[in-house]
Design a protein around this nucleic acid. Structure first.
Length: 475
RNA sequence: CGGGAUGUGGCUCAAUUUGGUAGAGCAUUAGGUUUGGGACCUAGUGGUUGCAGGUUCAAAUCCUGUCAUCCCGACCA
C-alpha cells in the first residue's frame, strides 16, 4: 500500500523530497535555521559513504588531518577572488563574553586558507612533496534558501588539499580525484553522473579550473555533486607556499582541492527513491537485508530466521531481524520506506509449503522461492542484480532526459516542457551564458570533451562554437 | 529587502466570523486480543493557544506592538 504521508513524486517533487527525508527518518529540522539534525538512518548512510571513500583515499596515498574551524580575517583576505566569492555567505565570530575577540574569525566555509597557512610553514624542499592531505569536517555557509541535505547552512564533507612540485602532477591529481568521484557515483551510488570542466563563470572562486560531477535528478533538474579544482600556483602565491626545487631554486607549490558532501544523500533520494519512500543501492545501504518473521512464538520460524540472519552476517551481508511487536504489514511498509534493498518474509505457511518470500525494494517484486534456494549466494547475487538494475534504470531515464539544442528556440522549448541535460555548442562568451540563464535560470553544467560536435555554431549567438557544453536547471 | 500567508500537545488541524470550562485524528504509555501489506479493544500521559502589553466580570478569539516560520520575487559555488 502506498504511504499516505508521502506526497506523490509527480504531483509535487519538492514536497515529495522532504516527505521522503522525514518518512525514512534521515533528518529532521532543528530550531537553528538551515541546520538539520542528521538522524541515525541518515548518518548511517553518511558513515557508509565515509568508510568507502576514506578507504579509497588512503589506498591512493592520502592521509587525514584536522584544521581549525575558525579562520582569521587577514588570512581570508590574502586571496582576493576567494574572499569575493565567499563574502556573502561567511558568518563571523567576533566576540567572547562581552569583549571583542583578538581577531575577526570566519566560521569555516572552506579551508584553503588554513591549509595554505599550514603548508607555508611545512614545505622546504621538493622532497617534502607531494603532501596529500584530506579533512572530514563540517562547514558553514549562510544560505538563504535551505533544504535538508540538498542545501543546508551547515553540512558535512571531505575536502582534499594537496600540494605538488609540478603542474603536471597536480593536474593529474585533480583528474584522478574526479575519477574517484565518478567511480563512486557510478559503482556505489548507482548514479550515472557526467563530468567535465566548469566554464570560467561557474568555476570555483580562485581556481585555474574546476572539474565537476553532475547528476540528473528524476525531475530533470541537475545537481552538482562533487568538484575537483586545479589552482596552479594561484593560492600558493597568495599565501607564499614555496619550496626549493631540484635546481635549488624557490618555486611556488601547485595546489589542488576536491570535495564531496552530504548532498550525495540528496542525490540518492532524488535519483532512486519513489512514492513508497527511500530506495538505497545495496552497496551504500547501511542495512542490506531485513528478515521479517510472521506469526508469533513459532520456534521453527524464529530458528530459521536467526540461522539465516547469522549466515548472512558471517558472510559480510548486513542483515537484521525485525522482531518488533508491529504487524507484518507495518514492518513491510517500514522496511520499504527506509529503502532496505531486500526483505525476506518467513512464516508458518512457508514452512508447510517449503517456501520463503523474498522482496526487492527497487522493483517491489515479491519472489517465492523454495526454502533450499535461500542461500547466502542467492542473496549476494540478488544484491548485485539490484545494484546493476538501479544504475541501468537511472541511466535509461537520464538518456531520456538528455537533449540536443541547436538554437535558443530549441533550448526554450526543452526547458519549458521537460528540462534535463541539454547538449549544445557554445562560443565561449559569458554574454551568451547570461542570455541563456534568462531562460528559467538555465546554466552551463560542464564542458564535455568527447570530441563530439553537435553543431558548428554557438547555440546562442550563432558565432563559431568552441565548446560542447551540457546545460541545465540546477539545484 | 518588496508582496502574500500562517503561528493552538511531538505532528496535521478544529474552535476565532458572533469573547463564556481548549477539542479531534495521528503519534506516544500500560494491559489485552491479533499478526502474509501500515490491526483492534480498554485505560492513560501530554497544551499558561509564538511573545509582550491593552480592553473586559471573562480573551485562543477583540486592539496595539513584537518575534518567528512558510510561499512568491530578488539573491546564491
Amino acid at each position: 500500500m502506498k504511504n499516505e504521508s508521502i506526497t506523490s513524486r509527480d504531483t509535487d517533487f519538492a514536497k515529495w523530497y522532504t516527505d521522503v527525508v522525514r518518512a525514512a527518518k534521515l533528518a529532521d529540522y532543528t530550531s537553528v535555521k538551515g541546520c538539520i539534525a542528521i538522524e541515525p538512518n541518515g548518518y548511517a548512510i553518511w558513515e557508509r559513504i565515509q568508510s568507502i571513500l576514506d578507504k579509497k583515499f588512503k589506498e591512493m596515498g592520502h592521509v587525514n588531518v584536522q584544521m581549525p574551524m575558525l579562520i582569521p580575517e587577514h588570512l581570508f583576505n590574502q586571496e582576493k577572488e576567494l574572499i569575493e566569492g565567499f563574502a556573502p555567505e561567511l558568518v563571523w565570530a567576533t566576540e567572547v563574553g562581552d569583549r571583542k575577540l583578538e581577531d575577526r574569525y570566519a566560521i569555516r566555509s572552506t579551508s584553503e586558507t588554513v591549509f595554505c597557512d599550514y603548508y607555508k610553514k611545512h614545505l622546504t624542499s621538493y622532497r617534502d612533496l607531494p603532501k596529500l592531505y584530506n579533512q572530514w569536517c563540517n562547514v558553514f555557509r549562510y544560505e538563504k534558501e535551505t533544504r535538508p541535505f540538498l542545501r543546508s547552512r551547515e553540512f558535512l564533507w571531505q575536502e582534499g588539499h594537496t600540494v605538488h612540485a609540478t603542474a603536471e602532477e597536480a593536474e593529474w591529481e585533480t583528474k584522478r580525484m574526479m575519477d574517484v568521484y565518478m567511480w563512486f557515483n557510478h559503482e556505489i551510488l548507482a548514479i550515472p553522473s557526467i563530468s567535465g570542466k566548469k566554464t570560467e563563470k561557474e568555476k570555483f572562486a580562485g581556481a585555474e579550473y574546476t572539474i565537476t560531477c553532475e547528476d540528473l535528478m528524476y525531475n530533470g533538474v541537475c545537481l552538482q555533486d562533487g568538484t575537483s579544482h586545479y589552482f596552479g600556483q594561484k593560492f600558493s602565491k597568495a599565501y607564499d607556499v614555496k619550496f626549493t626545487n631540484k635546481d635549488n631554486k624557490d618555486e611556488y607549490a601547485y595546489y589542488t582541492t576536491w570535495g564531496k558532501t552530504t548532498r550525495m544523500i540528496a542525490a540518492i533520494i532524488m535519483v532512486h527513491a519513489d512514492d513508497y519512500g527511500l530506495v538505497l543501492p545495496p552497496r551504500i545501504a547501511p542495512k542490506q537485508v531485513v528478515i521479517i518473521p510472521i506469526g508469533k512464538d513459532n520456534t521453527e520460524v524464529n530458528n530459521l530466521c536467526c540461522e539465516f540472519n547469522k549466515k548472512l552476517n558471517d558472510n559480510n551481508v548486513v542483515s537484521y531481524i525485525d522482531n518488533s511487536e508491529k504487524n507484518p504489514g507495518f514492518k513491510f511498509a517500514e522496511a520499504e520506506v527506509n529503502g532496505i534493498p531486500i526483505r525476506i518474509e518467513i512464516g508458518a505457511r512457508d514452512l508447510v509449503n517449503g517456501t520463503v518470500t523474498v522482496a526487492r525494494r527497487d522493483t517491489r517484486e515479491k519472489i517465492n522461492i523454495k526454502k533450499d534456494e535461500l542461500t547466502v549466494e542467492y542473496i549476494t547475487n540478488l544484491l548485485e542484480t539490484i545494484q546493476k538494475d538501479m544504475y541501468n534504470k537511472a541511466l535509461e531515464r537520464q538518456n531520456k532526459l538528455t537533449f540536443e539544442a541547436h538554437n535558443l528556440t530549441d533550448m526554450e522549448k526543452i526547458l519549458n516542457t521537460q528540462p534535463g541535460f541539454i547538449h549544445a555548442m557554445w562560443c565561449g562568451d559569458e554574454s551568451c551564458e547570461l542570455k541563456i540563464k534568462e531562460i528559467k535560470g538555465c546554466k552551463s553544467r560542464c564542458i564535455v570533451e568527447d570530441g563530439k560536435k553537435i553543431d558548428d555554431k554557438c547555440v546562442c549567438c550563432g558565432k563559431e562554437a568552441k565548446y560542447h557544453v551540457v546545460w541545465g536547471i540546477q539545484y
